[in-house]
Design a protein around this nucleic acid. Sequence first.
DNA 1: GCGTATACAATACGAACGTATTGTGTCGTT
DNA 2: AACGACACAATACGTTCGTATTGTATACGC
Lengths: 185, 185
Amino acid sequence: MSHDAKEKIVTAMIELISEQGFEGLSVRGVASRASVSIGAVQHHFPTKVRMLEAAMTAVASRAAQRFGELETIEDPLTRLQALIDLLIPQDTADPIARVWLNFAVRSTVDTNLRNTYVKLWASMRNQLRLLLAAAGGHKYTDETALELLALLDGLTLSVLAEHQDPDRVRRIANARVEELLRHDS
Amino acid sequence: MSHDAKEKIVTAMIELISEQGFEGLSVRGVASRASVSIGAVQHHFPTKVRMLEAAMTAVASRAAQRFGELETIEDPLTRLQALIDLLIPQDTADPIARVWLNFAVRSTVDTNLRNTYVKLWASMRNQLRLLLAAAGGHKYTDETALELLALLDGLTLSVLAEHQDPDRVRRIANARVEELLRHDS
DNA sequence: GCGTATACAATACGAACGTATTGTGTCGTT
DNA sequence: AACGACACAATACGTTCGTATTGTATACGC
């Protein structure tokens, strides 16, 4: 089975990054976790940086898929709340959030990675802004979206790094959204 | 000169972590940057994890010193704003912020480190809560401080990872503080 | 049916890593 | 003057790393 191995490798990478971050992440470790040979990893991802790139695009597409599922929700407010539910990690082990955090930090030192991260998060902010506008009003500026996404990022960090209670954190995020909407009307 | 070398090593470590994160940080690299021998590094920090611990306590104490200088400010509101000015990185290269971020992320996988990080950030939240109460009112809950610090963390991340304009980010932080105080009165 | 591309596996190589070991000079103490 | 503690320096050891090389089995076009 050909692309089975590729998927297994990507999955193993996400698991390992989520468990131990980028330090300690080795080609050998990925191969071992995926139960494939080192050669298999090298075949699909010729270098380590290509391997990491694949990991990020994988989590990005997985996240995008989840976000896409929200499109079916009609009411902008409940869709906004559902989006927040996705962005705030469900628990301390949430792989998507953990991998995201590692890539965000990595982008502070890696120019190539930063470019994609900047675009990704800019579009995320745009999403938030549109949803805010649709949900409550029309006077939302870019600043509002920047504040909200930064709040969500910081709350996410507090869950992952400090083990803050996810439910409590979620309530805070939702409270801020309601406050933003109330102010506008 | 004996403790000259120790200081040079710590300074070199902070520089290197700030520049390239934990990956790529090696004993040899630190020794080279500090212009001392590998043996010197080993003498003062027998293992690498002890070396990293020293780096974190160093930035913590440097940050604490800066925060201590704020004590002289009488007015709680201006002191709060000054604290925010310290927490939001001045620019993309701000070493304290960058090292902090690396340690925060590291604490998502390192239990020992997390314990100290949790305590550090809990006391930071307490500071914020007290300042908020002194500046504007008395009905501030722990939730308020949690939201504000998360916002500051997220904004910091946006500066470091996305290269958001520090001034703009600072304005957002200050705007939120004013809003919080206005609401209470 | 035969060459070619694909999808791996196995192994090997050189570099970089953390750390152990040992040597050397400079002290303050006795 | 002798000596032990300290602050390094130099080097060596074993491991792990990314990657290059080579081999092999399977699928497929012609």
